[in-house]
Design a protein around this nucleic acid. Structure first.
Lengths: 226, 226
DNA sequence: TTCATACTTCGATGGTAGTCGAAGCATTAA
DNA sequence: TTAATGCTTCGACTACCATCGAAGTATGAA
């Protein structure tokens, strides 16, 4: 009784702990080399290489060569959304790999979700944008309003350049720690880039966590009041 | 660098073809016995039994004994949502287990998604309810409006009884064939039950497909105009 | 009781996939 | 050229797990 798409294929790709660790590491948004991914997963380079080619063949990762390095990253936004979604489900079942450690609160507060902001801050940002009617909810999709366009231009994000890309500008992504949506899509990416560029927030090394500076906190709260 | 929830655990549960087939079969919404599930998966009863206890331990399935039968079903709405979501992702990657067969169009038109209506009809129904302002979108969640409450009472669905349960009344579920949301939650379930009870639609055996009768089609189109 | 059905548990088997050492290829630097 | 780094490919090993036969348990029927 074989019906519909093959979930076993993706399942088995994600089901191996080493591969799952690599995917989680890549949720940090940076493109990583096989060597880096191997240490994240706690395996040798050879084994990592074999896993990576499987993930690439499965369409989860893409790869680009640069000199003698190879950089792997998640293939598309959809991959990140799917993974975050799975994490949400796993979290709701209490499937945690660790007793909640010191890093955990930081992750829940603010973290990178592939290329955009997630965690409490991510959710608050989207809520605030919707409350200010700068983003509106239309069925499944999010749409930037006229007021929203003016707003992001004022922040120094070019609406025209966002529109050029074929990717959706706004899109929802289910947050595993908050169990609510935050903002993904090219605007979500642009906003996170803005925070980092302005020095309001910094990525932690080897972690998805994002640390806001004091001035960054203030600026963020000013821009996106609750 | 172990961070966040353990996606490998769910991945490996879903990653086995036999288990994936059982889960897919259970997406049909009916509770099934180990014997039935074994034939769906093409394995013996002993093997099925072992798989089922793993799925139950993982929190994906629940079981109830009835006489000398055991009935398995998806543990909660969330499991169905997660699976439908994964199917959507798999479909978008072209991971299909079969060349699209004769059953495929029927599945895309209308099918059971655990306990509610999915496919083209499911999506149209939700769109229509939103357009009529009987359901409104509030951030992530769907909410039944006053007009919506009156409407469903008129259809013979008791709002009070829906409200009693702790489950959300309305909730979105991403449709893998349409790539848009349809209506899940207790109202989604009640509406599907209504269609079946009124004889407007019938489940096909051993399939998730739902076949609307001629009069059912008319009634449906009348209730939920495009 | 006896028999039949439904299912689980045990035990053995076999295949597959993750793992790593060693060797090979490609790029860069000197 | 030579050497070093980064990565892949090959081959062998191992461990795990899906699988099924056989035996055991539970419920129901006769």
């Amino acid at each position: 009784m074989k019906e519909g798409p093959d979930i076993a294929l993706i399942g088995s790709l994600i089901g191996d702990p080493a591969r799952a660790n690599m995917l989680t590491a890549l949720m940090g948004g940076r493109a990583l080399t096989p060597t880096e991914l191997a240490t994240h997963a706690g395996i040798t380079l050879q084994t990592a290489s074999s896993h990576l080619s499987k993930l690439e063949a499965g369409g989860l990762l893409t790869q680009r060569k640069q000199g003698r390095h190879r950089y792997y990253q998640l293939a598309e936004d959809e991959v990140g959304l799917m993974l975050e979604n799975l994490m949400g489900f796993a979290a709701s079942r209490g499937m945690n790999r660790h007793r909640p450690g010191p890093k955990d609160p930081a992750l829940r507060k603010a973290r990178v979700c592939y290329n955009h902001l997630a965690g409490d801050y991510g959710v608050r940002m989207l809520d605030s944008l919707i409350a200010a009617k700068q983003i509106e909810v239309a069925g499944d999709d999010l749409a930037l309003t006229d007021a929203g366009q003016i707003r992001i231009e004022a922040l120094g994000i070019s609406y025209a350049s966002l529109k050029k890309s074929r990717r959706p500008i706004c899109r929802t992504c289910l947050d595993w720690s908050e169990r609510r949506s935050h903002l993904a899509g090219s605007l979500g990416e642009a906003l996170l880039t803005l925070f980092l560029d302005k020095g309001w927030a910094k990525r932690e090394n080897n972690s998805r966590a994002i640390r806001f500076t004091d001035s960054g906190e203030k600026a963020f709260s000013g821009l996106f009041p609750q």
